[in-house]
């Protein structure tokens, strides 16, 4: 097998797997939420309702593709694509197993941070282009929330980078052969996890689309497949954050007996499950609480973590 063919296989393999995971999550999330609420969830389409994503897809594709006459048309159409593109690009640096990764960048971690910041444009532009007060408020909330939480998201990862001595994700995984970074970097893990929830604006931090106050927030005016793209983007985001948690703190593909890819996905799906469990459990905070929590609790914690990690490394040095 030529290098190019292998390369293409990985690229399209990753794309296909990620897309199908995102789609499958539609069913998984609803099913799990159902179970946690003493219900069954979708169980009619196909065995155990597994074909629900297919049905949803047919529905969302055949819906009227409506652009409101008052919307800023080009931006309105562009916005949902941005989120999917940025998240998919971020997957390029994720090492699924030794040798299975699209790009082995030595600045992989920074690349991920950069692309996750770009994702906010999608929300901000979508909300702005809708020309709808709820959408605009949602977009503003999203921007403020992303800016706040990105600061310590990056800072929380610096401990990992320091321990591994590299920004290369593959090397970070290799560095955890002895001990998963979750042990020395527990604080970093907690901060990154919370920041990840906020970054993907998942519950309990879904204030940009708080349906009880903002109808549907930034995507109020979206319907059909454009809405579907936002939806897919959100699930891709969850998968990305979960994959990174597994990579950065839980030893990535490392594990006994089973093939490395399997370990990687077991770990990733565990965190995806945790995301959904959070949604099933926690109520949404007020907006000022969210921002205050970010700046007054998480940022000092992340700095403290950085300081202590740096100090210990220096001392152990």
């Amino acid at each position: 097998m030529s290098e190019t063919a292998r390369y293409l296989l990985i690229v399209f393999g990753v794309l296909a797997v990620m897309m199908s995971i995102a789609a499958g999550l539609i069913w998984v999330e609803r099913r799990l939420l159902g179970f946690w609420q003493d219900r069954y969830g979708p169980n009619r389409v196909g065995p155990f309702g597994i074909l629900q994503p297919l049905a949803d897809m047919i529905k969302v594709l055949t819906k009227e593709d409506w652009v409101p006459p008052f919307a800023d048309r080009p931006v309105f159409i562009l916005a949902p694509a941005i989120i999917v593109i940025t998240v998919l690009l971020a997957f390029a640096v994720v090492p699924f197993a030794p040798g299975i990764s699209v790009a082995d960048l030595n600045v992989g971690l920074l690349y991920f941070l950069a692309l996750s910041s770009l994702g906010v444009y999608s929300v901000a532009l979508g909300g702005w282009a809708s020309d709808n007060k709820y959408a605009l408020i949602g977009a503003l909330r999203a921007s403020a929330q992303m800016i706040s939480y990105e600061v310590f998201m990056g800072l929380s990862l610096m401990g990992v980078a320091m321990l591994a001595g590299s920004f290369n994700l593959r090397e970070i995984v290799e560095a955890q052969r002895r001990l998963w970074f979750v042990a020395p970097q527990f604080l970093g893990f907690v901060v990154f996890f919370i920041a990840g929830v906020a970054e993907t604006h998942r519950l309990p931090f879904d204030l940009p689309e708080a349906e009880s106050e903002l109808v549907a927030g930034f995507h109020s005016e979206y319907s059909g497949m454009k809405f579907g793209l936002f939806f897919v983007g959100e699930y891709l985001g969850i998968t990305l954050i979960s994959a990174l948690i597994a990579t950065l703190f839980f030893g990535g593909w490392l594990g006994p007996l089973l093939p490395p890819v399997v370990w990687f996905f077991i770990k990733t799906f565990f965190f995806i499950g945790l995301f959904i469990l959070l949604r099933a459990t926690l109520p949404r905070p007020r907006y000022d609480q969210l921002i205050r929590f970010g700046w007054k609790v998480m940022l000092p914690l992340a700095l403290l973590n950085l300081l202590v990690t740096g100090g210990i490394i220096l001392a152990a040095g």
Partner: peptide, 22 residues
């Protein structure tokens, strides 16, 4: 309390479902 709530919700996975399968 947040962790306990998360755990409690998780345990509902094994509860009897109230849905009637009409």
């Amino acid at each position: 309390s947040i962790l306990r709530a998360i755990w409690t919700v998780f345990l509902h996975l094994f509860r009897r479902k109230v849905t009637v399968l009409y």
